[in-house]
Design a binder for these strands. Structure first.
Lengths: 191, 191
DNA sequence: CGATGGCTTGAAATCTCTCAAAGAAAGTGG
DNA sequence: CCACTTTCTTTGAGAGATTTCAAGCCATCG
């Protein structure tokens, strides 16, 4: 479990290209699936210094058998991960440049907000353009150009790793972002 | 649960573009996630005449509480779905034309083989080029051209809805296909 | 037999990539 | 605190992949 910091899970194609398939932030358990899937089909990497906690499968199984509602809670977590993957398939498959990027930024903002890491429409996002490229299915060069365009259009403001969203509604609209798929208990009105 | 026939789950972007996020075949439960996720975040459609079975959430919950191993089995199913989504993100994000298409065809062949729907490296695939396009993140026109190229290269043979793979190893290689992510119990050597 | 859905074609427009290099920024060691 | 290295960002121009638009073909079906 990630206690603080940013990590990601990724896969590598036969040609050595990397695809980040999820970003994991505080509170996430990036490898919960290993409880029931014996063979690893993706890798985990940190994107910033992280503090992490480890829970043995044994302990998890114990918890689950003694408290069935815990099972449901964990299961639900993995189902939400799957819902996010589905959304990523759509994002990568059907949106281009600015829209695709805006969508990802919206998702990150909402998830970060849910764990208290957003203040004044801004957050610390220690993700490089190369990493965004690997998550969005672009080249780093293209991400750079997309970011420039988004800055020019006033969609984002960046200072180092700090990201500020001047107009949340507009970013949401550009990214066609609907947070339903995140299945948050408390509805996130705005970041 | 799909008993026979082909279905898919999909999402629609704000601009009305469709992205198929999974194909479901005999034995699949396309909406198992609804057991723990109250809000629907994708749609299901049939691609061919299907016979389907319905299981109420109540019955499922009953089964799960009485037989914890059933819980694990269902949970595992949803985790495999998630693993497939991850692979799709990579496929759509990092592979192009022929390779992306080959990968999808490999996945379908292996999954169909697992339920006995492949004979002599061939299967019935009632999926139109428009639907392939929506699954691969291409336009129908491009899928058509990719198919033509694959036919010309002897990677696939099509007669109506029947798909034959003349050289499985080559298709696998072109699609960089490694079935690990499908987490099949019995390893599928070849389709 | 006309209608419909699916497949195929061509040419031009777009988006995104590649390659190659230079400019910032950040971390390291003295 | 400065030089030095490394990592990250930015630029330009040409190439490549994919889309768009628009039309024609083919099979199937009522």
């Amino acid at each position: 479990m990630i206690l603080s910091g940013f990590a990601c899970t990724y896969k590598i194609t036969g040609q050595g290209k990397r695809q980040i398939v999820s970003f994991t932030i505080a509170g996430d358990i990036p490898d919960l699936q290993s409880l029931h899937l014996k063979v690893l089909d993706n890798s985990v990497a940190t994107l910033s210094p992280c503090s992490v906690g480890f829970i043995t499968h044994e302990d998890l199984r114990h918890l689950c058998t003694r408290f069935p509602r815990i099972t449901s809670a964990f299961w639900r977590e993995t189902l939400i991960d799957a819902a996010i993957f589905r959304e990523w398939v759509m994002n990568v498959g059907r949106r281009e440049g600015v829209s695709r990027t805006a969508h990802l930024l919206c998702e990150l903002m909402v998830r970060l907000k849910a764990v208290g890491l957003v203040e004044d429409h801004a957050c610390d996002l220690p993700i490089t353009q190369v990493e965004f490229a690997d998550a969005l299915g672009f080249t780093p060069v293209h991400v750079n150009r997309v970011f420039q365009q988004m800055r020019a259009e006033g969609l984002i403001v960046t200072e180092g790793t700090r990201l500020t969203i001047p107009d949340w509604d507009r970013l949401k609209q550009v990214g066609e972002f609907d947070p339903t798929y995140l299945h948050l208990e408390i509805e996130q009105a705005a970041a």
